[in-house]
């Protein structure tokens, strides 16, 4: 399995000279499975270049959406395989308690927000996930669970024989907890992340920023570290960087995190182009 970060930014795309290293595109992660599986995690603006580099002869792509906030679906209409009749595209994601996945996605993929209707795309199959759910994509096993974030939001655990990945890009496990981390069985996302080789996790805020953003659905740097430690992961990749955080600021924060904590896992800054989970 090979995992590559194409979009790492949270909330809003923020290109420019200050975000070159960590990236300005919103959430999109490419995953290549050992049996040729082609999976994309989320469809933020970072999914566009993934589509541009899709090899000829590709027959199928599976897109796993964690939730339908704009920074996670904005790139969907710009993913070129969607318009290629030779490629099957399967989109997996959550419905809500009142609307199905199709109805929810159509709110974006229809005028006036987008000129092309979802129904006009050549070969797209939607799979509404009702969590907790487990399913297979080729040789990969995927598990989806609801996690703490406003609106129906899932985290994914994806297992291949060689590597286990947990993807929780938008996650606030500390919400409402008197002392975080809490015990594992009362911690959002614990089962998904427990013991994985690689955890890609929300690390949007500083402690000061979080004070005025409690309940917005995201973690601080320290929350991400504490959650990774609780779940006994082997590697933590920081993700969903705040649009206002520059490369310089994030480098400084990563250095402070490493220096101030006795980490029992590898801390990896989530920069665009990073490749991990390589067999």
């Amino acid at each position: 399995m090979k995992v590559t970060l194409w979009g790492t930014r949270g909330s809003l795309a923020s290109g420019g000279p200050d975000t070159v290293q960590y990236g300005g595109d919103t959430a999109a992660v490419e995953l290549r499975g050992p049996a040729g599986e082609f999976v994309v995690l989320d469809a933020g603006s970072g999914i566009r270049p993934i589509g541009e580099q899709t090899p000829s002869g590709t027959k199928r792509v599976d897109i796993l959406l964690t939730h339908l906030h704009m920074d996670h679906i904005q790139g969907l209409g710009f993913f070129s395989p969607l318009f290629d009749p030779e490629i099957e595209v399967h989109v997996w994601g959550p419905g809500s308690t009142t609307l199905g996945l199709r109805e929810r996605l159509t709110r974006y993929l229809s005028p006036p927000l987008f000129p092309v209707m979802l129904r006009d795309l050549p070969d797209v199959t939607l799979h509404e996930i009702r969590p907790p759910a487990s399913f297979a994509l080729g040789s990969l096993t995927v598990r989806a669970e609801l996690i703490t974030h406003p609106g129906p939001t899932m985290g994914y655990r994806i297992e291949s024989p060689e590597c286990v990945l947990a993807y929780l890009p938008d996650h606030e496990p500390a919400l409402g907890v008197a002392e975080f981390p809490d015990v594992p069985d009362w911690t959002s996302g614990f089962e998904l992340a427990h013991g994985v080789d690689v955890l890609i996790h929300d690390a949007q805020y500083t402690d000061d920023e979080y004070k005025s953003r409690v309940g917005w659905g995201h973690s601080t740097f320290d929350h991400a570290l504490a959650f990774a430690a609780l779940a006994s992961v082997k590697q933590l990749v920081t993700f969903h960087h705040d649009p206002g955080h520059s490369d310089e600021m994030l480098d400084r924060a990563m250095a402070e995190m490493s220096e101030s904590h006795d980490l029992e896992f590898e801390l990896v800054p989530g920069r665009v182009g990073l490749t991990t989970c390589v067999d």
């Binding site: 199905g100 996930i129 009702r130 759910a133 487990s134 399913f135 096993t141």
Partner: peptide, 14 residues
């Protein structure tokens, strides 16, 4: 509902 994936049968593998 295209994929009802939360069945005990499937979860039993995990």
């Amino acid at each position: 509902f295209l994929v009802a994936t939360g069945s005990e049968e499937l979860r039993a593998d995990i």
